[in-house]
């Protein structure tokens, strides 16, 4: 009996959530790419993205499919179609953004509880932006050879990234993620689910431990530890700012970050493949029943 309460979607419902999240977030991304930003001295007030769309969908539906759909939508509409595809760099954005949205989605048990939704939104955003900031700093570190030789460059990059982080979190985060999500979630709850032919998420619905611990959990764990390694690497180099050994950079910096990111990406891909297979077996079981 307890098994009935587990929140589950069929394969086609997952696909619906995926398509919905992809096309909507992709569309919003095209607009935000084209809205000019306002520069007030060092603070840039820009509409980074309309994170409220994937956040709302993650909270109302299956978080994993909504999160991956949104990231893919951003890549297709916002990057490929506008010719801004950063290539390998997008993998990092894909992973951090999906992770942030996913975390926000699983934190919410009751979509009508505003407090819960608010906390979930902010923690999802913090996860996404913090990881993004760390990777960004690492990229400049790898890309600029004479970083240590030029006075002020290293500090300025950290300041810029820090300001961007705060801007993303406090300006874009509150105006375009927190407030709209708080407005939309209670309004859409119970209305949008029947359109996709499913029941609204119940307060008592939960994910079974088995579902959480399998591939997803492993990915999150591995990605987080990979990030931790990068963070450690960065903090170590920060201490030896003045006397940076060039060969340390040569033997470590150049490929290290990319290997970590690559491993994380490979694992993510493998997991997605595994999950696809899992769904396939589930479906074939259903077929057998039929």
């Amino acid at each position: 009996m307890a098994k009935r309460e587990v929140f589950q979607l069929t394969q086609s419902q997952k696909m619906m959530v995926f398509i919905l999240s992809m096309s909507l977030y992709g569309l919003s991304n095209m607009f935000t790419e084209l809205i000019p930003s306002l520069q007030l001295g060092p603070v840039e007030l820009s509409v980074e993205y309309f994170a409220f769309i994937p956040l709302t969908l993650c909270i109302l539906f299956h978080p994993l499919y909504a999160a991956i759909g949104a990231s893919l939508g951003e890549i297709i509409f916002g990057e490929l179609m506008l010719g801004q595809f950063g290539g390998i760099g997008e993998i990092e954005k894909f992973i951090t953004f999906s992770l942030g949205m996913y975390i926000a989605g699983i934190l919410v048990r009751n979509p009508l509880n505003r407090m819960q939704v608010g906390v979930a939104v902010m923690s999802g955003l913090i996860v996404h932006h913090l990881l993004g900031m760390i990777v960004d700093i690492g990229k400049v570190w790898v890309g600029v050879e004479e970083l240590e030789a030029v006075k002020g460059l290293a500090e300025s990059i950290i300041v810029i990234e820090g300001v961007a982080f705060l801007n993303d979190l406090l300006f874009s985060g509150i105006l375009f993620a927190l407030l709209p999500t708080l407005y939309l979630v209670p309004r859409l709850y119970g209305k949008i689910e029947p359109l996709l032919g499913m029941k609204p998420r119940n307060k008592d619905d939960r994910y079974t431990m088995k579902e959480i611990v399998t591939p997803r959990f492993v990915v999150i764990g591995i990605v987080l530890s990979a990030i931790a390694i990068i963070a450690e690497f960065l903090s170590e180099t920060e201490f030896s700012f003045g006397e940076w050994e060039p060969d340390f950079m040569e033997m470590f910096g150049d490929w290290f970050i990319w290997i970590v990111i690559g491993v994380a990406a490979v694992i993510a891909v493998i997991t997605i493949a595994l999950m696809a297979r899992k769904n396939r077996t589930q479906r074939s079981k259903l077929n057998n029943v039929a």
């Binding site: 010719g83 600029v144 970083l147 030029v150 006075k151 002020g152 500090e155």
Partner: peptide, 29 residues
């Protein structure tokens, strides 16, 4: 920002080469 931190115009050159790098990658895509 790096001018504010006292980097001066010396930081222009490495930044220029970073731009070239970014441009190569972006144009390829």
């Amino acid at each position: 920002v790096s001018l504010v931190f006292g980097g001066g115009l010396a930081s222009l050159l490495p930044m220029f080469w970073l731009t070239v790098k970014l441009a190569v990658i972006a144009l390829a895509s």
